[in-house]
Design a binder for these strands. Structure first.
Lengths: 349, 349
DNA sequence: CTGAACTGAGAAAAGGTTTTCTCAAGTTGC
DNA sequence: GCAACTTGAGAAAACCTTTTCTCAGTTCAG
């Protein structure tokens, strides 16, 4: 405002005002100026406010680089991910970023794209810039990032990606989430709950399938198959064809491995005039709102609480940076069932 | 490797090795050590390689904070966005990040969520950390971020969001993109090309609608309506109902304002047994792959080249930081038509 | 053999801040 | 009136690197 109309499109930048400038203007030494601005040391109240006023007037901001150099702490962390576009790491990153920024810590975005060269490039850059710690996140819980973060001499936290052994990680409780879904269906009186899910190469597929089978057994329900295929709408379609055109009795509920599959399932059911939720209830996984909300009817689905997971990871990194000892290991954070309309009401409801 | 098996889960961090350590170990002064490692100054080849070997052996990395302090350049920029989750700013951010990282510049991720308080927090943090410049990006071309970036004394670039007056901005050429789509349809022999698009509160809606009308006129085709509504699948459904249940002649092509609408349009057409592309061709906008690929048939759609846009913005910021003078103004970057199967083949093809 | 040019390397300043140490002046207690 | 504190403030070191300046010793031309 007060500095005129520099359009800022290039050319000479004005030199930032330093503590020396403030001290000079206030007629004191830099030491005194520093103490005045940090509410430290001893001096007359008059001197202190005079210096503070001068600083404000000059628009003084302490140079964070100099502070970091001295404090051996940059208030900066690196966020390593191989999934910038992805809908999993995004909420995680948002949660991390939120937790850190609230604590005055800035976040370097480092997209490594499954490329070891890029990974090393980013890690080197972070090391050079003296980040206080690193958070690694990815698109799959069971895949490593293309870099080795152990032995860097820095605190490292893993969120939603496979950790180095002996480190600290936060992941979602997929068994728990799957239980939530299947128990919900059982509670609503569904007896034949099928499972349509992703490729068997994914660890979570097996975790969720096991929970599905376990809950059926616990509830005294007949075992039902877990159909594995791609994570796509098309596979949802095809799975419905298999389930309804086969010889066995058709299901009255489908627990899907993700929301895209669920969307395909719902569309396929509608195309064969099977009513959702009246004839068949459907539950998804991920709570990918744009998909879950657009399906007809809106999809009841498991939310992995990824933002909370990220926040937790961020806060844990901060306490690590502060020197707190944190027990290594993998922490599973609970999921949450997002109830919409694809399961209907319980018989008595 | 050589430093043993510190699990890195907390406790004392080892002090990074400094130039002083290297100099001491090599039996020279820090000045000489610095010059040796930067291939500067004069000394025997023997001395130089000895120092370099020592540095390597000790795992020395120059402290970027100290270098930045001296060079008055932090090799760091801030990326301000109000759309961390979003599918528009993400590719832009990826492009920016890519361009910058390749030039040794790290990126602070600053999500401001349309919250002025958060915006100020982030801007202050960036200023404190002495970023070399700022890139602002957002989810809408016609909406300002909740912070004022003018008069910061820093280079600023806007990407896919409304710039301050007199500044430098990169946006997609929406008219051009829309022309691409409608001309494609016309070239394929479609004569009645309707337009179903987003709310009239969006500037891009009007730009694309104008291009639609213009191309129809240029091609000597009858004017067709531009139906405006929400950016949703549901609106795509409803628009088809209006177009086909109304009194007028039904369209033989629909140019949609985004891929979700297009998806709704395609689903609605299938439900009324109108064949796509045989009876009606459909074009979307955004090339949101997850939607465009999942629709049946896969959607031909306009790609705004957002990654390239981001890359361009990043490179421009760098030249600004280097002191190059860049003409202020808004640069429109061309779109690209992503041809899939929702428009079929030209009559002669 | 002497002044000039060159060589290899170190000393010191700079960058901006924080913190500890020092010190002169003023105040209290006896 | 003097020792012992207290007060307000500055000097200087520290953080780590880069760069300019300085300097002793060597080589060369004349």
């Amino acid at each position: 405002m007060s500095s005129g109309s520099d359009s800022g499109t290039g050319g000479a930048r004005r030199r930032p005002v330093t503590l020396r400038d403030v001290a000079l203007a206030a007629g004191v030494s830099v030491a005194t100026a520093s103490k005045a601005l940090n509410d430290q040391g001893r001096m007359t109240a008059e001197t202190r406010t005079r210096i503070q006023d001068t600083a404000r007037q000059l628009g003084f901001r302490p140079n964070g680089l100099a502070q970091s150099l001295l404090r051996r702490r940059s208030f900066t962390v690196g966020l390593l991910t191989n999934d910038t576009y992805g809908r999993f790491s995004l909420p995680v990153m948002a949660g991390i970023s939120e937790a850190l920024v609230d604590n005055g810590v800035s976040v370097f975005l480092c997209n490594v794209e499954d490329d070891p060269r890029l990974g090393q490039l980013h890690v080197d850059a972070m090391l050079d810039k003296r980040v206080d710690g690193i958070i690694a996140t990815g698109k799959r819980v069971d895949r490593h990032l293309p870099v080795d973060l152990a032995g860097l001499g820095l605190p490292v936290i893993y969120a939603f990606t496979q950790p180095d052994p002996g480190s600290i990680a936060f992941v979602s409780d997929d068994e728990g989430g799957a239980r939530l879904a299947v128990e919900h269906l059982a509670r609503l009186g569904r007896r034949r709950i099928a499972h349509v899910t992703g490729p068997e190469t994914f660890a979570v597929v097996h975790q969720r399938a096991r929970a599905h089978a376990d809950v059926l057994a616990e509830q005294g329900l007949d075992p039902m198959p877990a159909l594995m295929g791609p994570w796509s709408e098309a596979w949802g379609h095809e799975a419905i064809a298999r389930l309804f055109d086969g010889t066995g009795e058709a299901p009255d509920a489908v627990f899907c491995g993700n929301d895209q599959i669920a969307r395909g399932v719902i569309d396929a059911l509608r195309e064969r005039s099977v009513r959702v939720p009246d004839d068949v209830a459907v539950v998804g996984f991920d709570n990918w709102e744009i998909v879950a909300r657009a399906s007809r009817p809106p999809l009841t689905t498991v939310d992995m609480n990824l933002v909370a997971l990220g926040r937790e990871a961020g806060l844990t990194l901060l306490s690590l940076v502060d020197g707190t000892r944190v027990e290594p290991g993998i922490r599973k954070l609970p999921c949450r069932l997002m109830v919409r309309e694809s399961c209907g009401q319980p018989p008595g409801g």
